[in-house]
Amino acid sequence: MKAQGTVFKYGDNVDTDVIIPARYLNSSDPAELATHCMEDIDTEFVKKVHKGDIIVANKNFGCGSSREHAPIAIKASGISCVIAETFARIFYRNAINIGLPIIECPEAAKEIKAGDEVEIDFDSGVITDKTTGKEYQGQPFPEFMQKIIKAEGLINYINEKG
């Protein structure tokens, strides 16, 4: 499995309130949530994002509220993977559970810039910045996590497993 796209870059402690503000949580429809994704820190995001694009951020990405609507909004907006220095723990679980690929890689998180074209190989964990030509080794996805991602979430995976 591979992902490739253009990078949106953010800093430390991107919380789930800015990923999807609570004023929109009266909906749980992924497509509707996606129309407000990141709007409190980046009003351009929804206008510019294309299917396959990648978010790169620094430490503690997804901190705060446990709302699963946050990874749902990111995934529904077309983002193929989030790379960060570290993730907040509830966001980490939620992202895997709904099948949004995420990778911790401090070096890549630090060096990759907004607008760079990046490719991620989920089998090897290798992140390639095609704009700079530099490669980074992130943690590869264990097989079961890749299966959850392919099944589009934990529940489908459990059902498929039987």
């Binding site: 509220s65 446990s66 699963e68 509830i90 679980r93 709904i98």
Partner: peptide, 24 residues
Amino acid sequence: DSHTCTYGAVGAFSTGIGSTDMAA
């Protein structure tokens, strides 16, 4: 709900998770 950790006050292990974990 992320503030599920509140019940540690009475000596329980309690932690916030998301909706899929809740369903499971």
